[in-house]
Design a protein around this nucleic acid. Structure first.
Lengths: 364, 364
DNA sequence: TTGAAAGCGCTAACAG
DNA sequence: CTGTTAGCGCTTTCAA
């Protein structure tokens, strides 16, 4: 019973695949009957059904998804595109999406495009070649001009972290403008007036929305966000360190720094240390995303928490809906949350507040 | 030219797929000729080849990998199994494997089994149903009894972080026994005598090897590793915090702690803080893996660096070899490296030593 | 309730 | 150099 390889044949070594025909022969029925049983379709007598079931079990039959996909035009596979799994922001999205997908019998084809737009485009084509049933593009960097036609060729698509044409793809995103506004407001309330932004990759849509929010919020507070205090750069620790170093060395007036994400913020914290600046005394640093490690930095990083797992979960759910032709025109916008820690204010509030309740895998 | 959807038909919306037959008709040749051109096979005149090429370009033809896989029995897909992408240890492996795979025209089917052995087994079967060309199992938790038959059904397989029967699967692993020995030696040389181990999941093979190394090394140094100072637990921050809290609260003598991985160590650092212990004064903590964030903890975490990216790279290379029937019987064992930071010794040495050279995305 | 025939899009093997 | 035939394992359609 626990023998996956069938009882007739120990099936040591590969390529001894049992087909519908084998099962049919064994059960003394036609291959169509077996197919019906396998797919739980009506039109098979109880006795026959039982006989077929037992043949399936004996032979250890498993349907060949490739063959099924060729005929039936569905693969029960979802293509998931992420810029870089190495950034802890994305694995949470992956897990959210995967949990939903698996529960519905789908498998994820994950592609990591390493922050490379061309690889992004070719990954989308590769998904198509493999006839995935739908795609989720997490934080795509391609411009609409190139992205939308590529997505339009898929039966169903969802974009994470960016607005989209609802006919082409659903959209699940975070209100980044609001997130950036919260961050700026927090910096301002901490008394910071000379604010700079490490803006991340120029092609990031989320980044642009945050910049918009930061710009508006500073303006409304009568602060200035000088253009040369908006510094683009790669969305990783190294990129953050370099950008922050250059920025702070040339412009020591800066006392508040909003970072593209927590990795960039980690780099900024390092740069500050190298330059002999004390955080938060001389400089307040706020990140974005609230990755698991943000609270372990020194000082612990204030940040804007993005509900990443939910982002993935909603994206997959929405995709499944769209595959069934439902839910077109539904967009989901999730609200981020301000998390205050030691990198922006001298005396961090007690850590164990309500904000920590949604995060799994973290003590308390 | 840049029009992916073909020039005849704007092909807005999905399911307007161009087939070999379409191209053949357009080029006025047989479908076999087109197939030869697509696959860069000889036996087609230059003129014809050019004509076919242009038809392919005009129609935006892309081969249907599903159909090809059905006939040719290869999908150019590799199944990659990881316990949990949320642990920064694994994304590095993923990237290493993916870089190699993509360079050779393969795609990764990634499955995250969330530290669940049953999901691990079913993921392996799902790979089979999809007729992947080979599988890489990263740190599989299944016991040999269950794992090996599952892998044997695949044409090619590689196990990461664990020994294996070379007929069934290749093996790329880290010399964990040695790694644990280095860790213990380091603790001992720092004057620690009362050593405990947060051993991670009982089913982890890597964990067992490390325990073996720790046990031998302590013995050889005339130290004792009491059985009740070996505490299993989940391999995440939360698990580490709980285990460390319980252990240290009941056994305050402990002055050296070897952790299953850096996440567990992070939890241990938190627990130490909660218990009012100063690291490294009262307690030295050493992790394992050297994830990107280890250096950002407070204090910065001493750890055993595992060459993760290389692990993935070698695994994929070995798998590709085995698919071609080469390299059976070749095992790869990589050596880990001791990284000393502030969590084990009071005065951390200058950070920017040679050890940092292999790690990408980190300043300096 | 059951089965036979046709074909998804492609490639291997053989013919011309 | 080019094309024809057969068939991968399955599901859809239609007939019994």
């Amino acid at each position: 019973m626990r023998n996956v390889s069938g009882s007739d044949d120990p099936a040591h070594g590969a390529d001894v695949k049992v087909t519908l025909a084998d099962v049919a022969r064994r059960a003394g029925v036609s291959i169509m009957t077996v197919s019906r049983v396998v797919n739980d379709r009506p039109g098979v007598g109880e006795a026959t059904r039982a006989r077929v079931r037992s043949a399936i079990a004996q032979l250890g039959y498993r349907p060949n998804i490739v063959a099924r996909g060729l005929k039936a035009r569905r693969s029960r596979t979802i293509g998931l595109l992420v810029p870089d799994v190495t950034n802890p922001y994305f694995p949470d999205i992956v897990r959210g999406a995967e949990d939903v997908a698996i529960r519905h019998g789908f498998t994820l084809l994950l592609t990591n495009v390493i922050e490379d737009v061309d690889r992004e485009a070719s990954a989308l084509l590769a998904f198509e070649d493999r006839r995935v049933d739908g795609v989720i593009a997490a934080s795509p960097r391609l411009d609409d001009e190139r992205l939308l036609p590529l997505l339009a060729r898929h039966a169903a698509a969802v974009i994470v972290n960016r607005r989209s044409d609802p006919d082409v793809a659903g959209s699940v995103r975070i209100d980044h403008e609001h997130g950036a506004r919260m961050a700026i407001r927090h910096l301002a309330e901490a008394g910071r007036r000379e604010i700079a932004v490490l803006a991340g990759p120029a092609y990031s849509h989320a980044g642009r929305e945050r910049l918009l929010g930061a710009d508006r919020e500073t303006r409304e507070r009568g602060l200035l966000l000088h253009e040369h205090r908006i510094v683009p750069g790669p969305p990783d620790v190294d990129g953050g360190a370099r950008a922050a170093h250059a920025l702070l060395a040339h412009d020591p007036e800066i006392d508040g720094l909003l970072c593209f994400n927590d990795l960039v913020a980690a780099g900024a914290l390092q740069a500050a240390t190298e330059l002999g600046l004390s955080v938060p005394r001389d400089l307040s640093v706020i990140g974005y995303d609230d990755i698991l490690f943000a609270r372990m930095f020194t000082p612990a990083l204030s940040t804007i928490r993005a509900p990443t797992y939910d982002l993935g979960r909603h994206a997959a759910t929405m995709l499944l809906d769209r595959m069934r032709g439902e839910g077109r025109g539904v967009d989901i916008v999730l609200q981020p949350e301000l998390i205050v820690r030691g990198s922006t204010v001298p005396a961090p509030p007690p850590e164990a507040h309500a904000a920590d309740r949604t995060r799994k895998g973290v003590p308390r």
